[in-house]
Design a protein around this nucleic acid. Sequence first.
DNA 1: ATGTCC
Length: 476
Amino acid sequence: MDMSKLLQRGDYEWELPKQGSMRVPGILYASRRLIETMDNKVLEQVRNVATLPGIVGASYAMPDAHWGYGFPIGGVAAFDPEEGGVVSAGGVGFDISCGVRLLRTGLALNDVRPVLPELMDALFNTIPAGVGSCGQIHLNDLRMSEMLRGGARWSVEQGWGRPEDLERIEENGRMAGARPENVSRQARRRQCDEMGTLGSGNHYLEVQYVEAVMDREIAASFGLRTGEVVVSIHCGSRGLGHQIGTEFLIEMAKAAKNSGIPLADRELACAPATSTVGQLYLGAMRAATNCAFANREIISHLARQTFSEIMPGAKLPLLYDVSHNTCKEETHLINGKETRLLVHRKGATRAFGPGHSDLPPAFRESGQPVLIGGSMGTASYVLAGLAENESKSLGSACHGSGRAMSRRQARRLWQGRKVVDDLRGHGIHVRSPSMRGVAEEAPDAYKDVDEVAKATECARLARRVARLRPLGVVKG
DNA sequence: ATGTCC
């Protein structure tokens, strides 16, 4: 990255000063090394987002930021609807409400290792993965609407999940304001056989163990102990979210033009939040959020069934489920005034700190679990939100290690089969329908997750709680 | 991310 455009505000904070048509400055949180290796495109996209109507505070980039569609992945931007603020489909991302959840198992590493190959085969056979994968659940139009309105609550009602999971999902597993009637026939059709499927790309189910605990008190309150096996699930709203994103990008391109919003990049397509298109998108996007919540709940149910067959008595309680591709209505303190905002987090995780009123009682003292997915061969992290991030990043943190290179570049450098064999040599069992997908997801195609997690803590966005090591991966 | 170009 061209460092000459940035002012260093702290060891882990960099400002892109307001200039030209920018309405607010850009703020990037990262170590010098992470900033240096970031694509110049990230800075350009942070700048572009800062020009959009109604943006408040700043256009933010998290330590894992990289180049995305219009908005950077690892970007946070909030807009005030009463000041002409916009909503943007590209600011949410194609995979609406993509997110991570973490299940504890109560099992020790040594109990699981002997059955690991068998366990991974069973998980791979039970949980459909890959592009266009279909599941056992088929939804007609009526049930589709119920799912889109009910989210994870609907899954639980159908018998695919447990009632006690719900308070451990953002929004209690059901996003209010969902408008199933705003979801097109095409989006519904793409989703009708895809519930309970993982999808492709960077989506996965990983069996991991707690390798190290950084904050003993919070780890204990989360029920995480060194050597315990956990399961992480990373996926989103599948074909439905993608279709909604695609359709509304077109509608928003028109809406921006009609509303006279100048776009620095056509990928920034957006509509005033109070406009017809803006409201239609919010209703559809919230329905897609419920689809993602429902999907992760069903996948958890399948994982629980599989575990109980191989490890009788294993319960797999949910620690937390949080999205990292969202636009949410939240109240934040802006210039000393409580303001209702539309907060876009694209490849960024909500990370509310201790005492936040939106958190369930279980996390009021610790702050919200922040689930950070690494790449296949490296680590994942559990962090906890910090109250001081409210004024820094509107209560947000990073979402993963972030890609360090394009998929095409990764395919040129590695062969999927060899990646699987290398990981097997490190004790990690990979199951995937696509060796091409595995090559694209090779561990070295990602940034160093340890450095990203450290920068997130040093920037005071979240506190590191535990480091997770993969044992087995089902990869889409 | 994605019925990876209806």
